[in-house]
Nucleic acid binder design. Structure first.
Lengths: 198, 198, 198, 198
DNA sequence: ACGTAAGCGAGACGGTACGTCGAGTCTTGGT
DNA sequence: ACCAAGACTCGACGTACCGTCTCGCTTACGT
């Protein structure tokens, strides 16, 4: 959103309009599930707002939707299960669960659908980043407690897990989020190299 | 594409039109990089073809683009490097490399941006499937040679690797595709659990 | 209207659309009476036509309205009353009568309201010209029969009469069109110079 | 303009704003030449004034423009040439000359383009009336001096002359204003009826 | 001198219409 | 039955103004 810096002359922008627009956008994104089928006109109508009021704040549809999605920030689960594995499973389970549902599909679409690459970055920052950060914490704690193998690159681990969740949830189809998460975490924990015959 | 079943009366459809349409579609997808900015009208114009000729073959823009993308099928690298690790790195390196470039970004967009879920499935089948299959072969061979730990679920391994590549390439930014692939493969091979103090 | 010259490839323009648009435009012009309150959108809606179909034919609202008005061409009264004065009165009476009524006010507005001067010219040609021509005929016949003073410039006479009708009808307000026409014609016939004391 | 009646509490309205608004309005009317292309926003911007300051004074665009035009009141030529014909020609010449120029065309547009008939009346009163009054004076003096034929209706004469000028200047195109005025005046003076063969 | 009430520039507000673009369909004459 | 061309209806786009409504700030009067 284009936030005017500091106090400016003229009537200030309406907070109520902000809220109405963002929540109308989310409503419609959830209903239609497809970014292309959510029109600015529909958002304006549902928010009870003129189109100009939207264009005064955002340059286009995508930017608006990104901001709308960013307001979601679903709460992360409470961690501290005692073990690194437990926490990893818990987080990944939520990521898997979030893959279902229309709104989430729309968000995924926003993640990659961009001409202007900065948009993907913004939503990544707003939505993905908190999850990555939580995973990162867990890994760091695992390193402290000795549960994480020294030498494992946390960044790589993180991406393997989240990317794995992203794809596995789609390709392997059914199954509970829990089972999916456990399979991925355990596979990664154990590694896939055959143990050297000692 | 809607292929007319069997022989039919009247003038047969022009193969030249097929080709012109598909390659015009790919051109534009590469130029614009964004599915929303590629219009059927532009495709028809560039292909020197009437719009009806397109709609006679495909029901809509997305289906056409999916088919166009499916014609790409970039060749997979020759494998058989002698070791499972070598082959995995080789394949993943190519996946990483393909993440760059406008066309590929557009393809990625197509992968998730869908209202109608079947489209995602089709393109997945056409583009992703060959890579998955190749990875799958490598894993199977690894199982035979004993390089792959027994008990590792190939499906999970596959998704961890490809998903990891997808995300790591974006989040970790720079670096050669080769280095990226090696890091991911080695991390997964070794696992992340600290070795039990035997 | 932008008439495509000769036969052209592609689907020809719909005559039904032409008619629907023009008559919808006239309807609305009559109802609203003010060019500014007739919107292209309303015309398109009433004609059951897309906006693009209008813009394909006319560059803007004014041009469309001009063409619409031009289709009116209300029939001129039958003349040949036997005398030049009678015919002049008859014609001027109709001009006076036409000054009343919403549609006519709208037409008058079009006559002068132009940024692009060609528009005024077009409507003048389409609507005013026939009346001028009829008056001109009467004057010419008057010259032949000797009823018109030799040396009177027909062009000047014509403008005096029609302009007089235009203004008198407005300024002098009430009165029947007939009376108005007779007053003007008789005043002009007799002249306003005092007769020279022979 | 809506003048607040009598003294009122609070800050009095700014005279400078009045002036700035009216002159900005005239500027733009002259530049654009078309009432529809002069926007209140543009007037406010050019006058360095808030829109509310305009709407506090006038109910709408048309009323403002009418008032703006009314401030013009171009000076009438000095008369008393000695003869009625001379004075008529002098006045009509000015009317003809005023027909040229963008501003004048815009004013003419205002004269007839009205939904609300009172607007036309107001501008008529402000701009046309002085000219009509001057003509009227000349005719009255002509009646006294015997130059004007007794029985000629001054109202009709007036409208014939001014309306004639209005139309003739447009239809007959070129020529000096002087020549145009003389032709019309002389035609009307002499009448158009053939002299009765005494 | 000071409060109060209206005016001020600025600009956001809900709307309406603009003129353009593209979607997917239909209609020509010609292959 | 196909083809290129292009018109068709429809709906969204992003812009421009409309007339109204806050904002924080003068500016003049009446106390």
């Amino acid at each position: 959103m284009q936030t005017p810096p500091g106090r400016r002359p003229g009537r200030p922008r309406s907070r109520r309009a902000d809220d109405a627009i963002l929540s109308a956008a989310l409503d419609l994104l959830g209903e239609r599930g497809n970014i292309a089928e959510v029109s600015i006109e529909a958002i304006a109508a549902r928010a009870g707002v003129g189109k100009a009021t939207i264009y005064r704040r955002w340059p286009g549809k995508e930017e608006l939707l990104v901001d709308a999605v960013a307001t979601l920030r679903p709460p992360l689960p409470d961690l501290d299960e005692g073990s690194m594995r437990g926490d990893l499973v818990l987080l990944l389970e939520q990521v898997c669960a979030e893959m279902d549902g229309k709104l989430q599909r729309a968000i995924n679409a926003l993640l990659v659908s961009r001409a202007h690459p900065e948009i993907g970055a913004r939503i990544k920052h707003a939505v993905l980043a908190p999850r990555r950060e939580a995973l990162y914490q867990v890994l760091r704690r695992g390193a402290e407690t000795g549960e994480l193998r020294p030498g494992a690159d946390p960044e790589a681990v993180l991406n393997l897990l989240m990317g794995g969740a992203l794809l596995h949830r789609r390709s392997a189809g059914g199954g509970s989020p829990r089972a999916c998460a456990e399979l991925l975490v355990d596979t990664l924990l154990a590694g896939i190299a055959a143990p050297r015959p000692a």
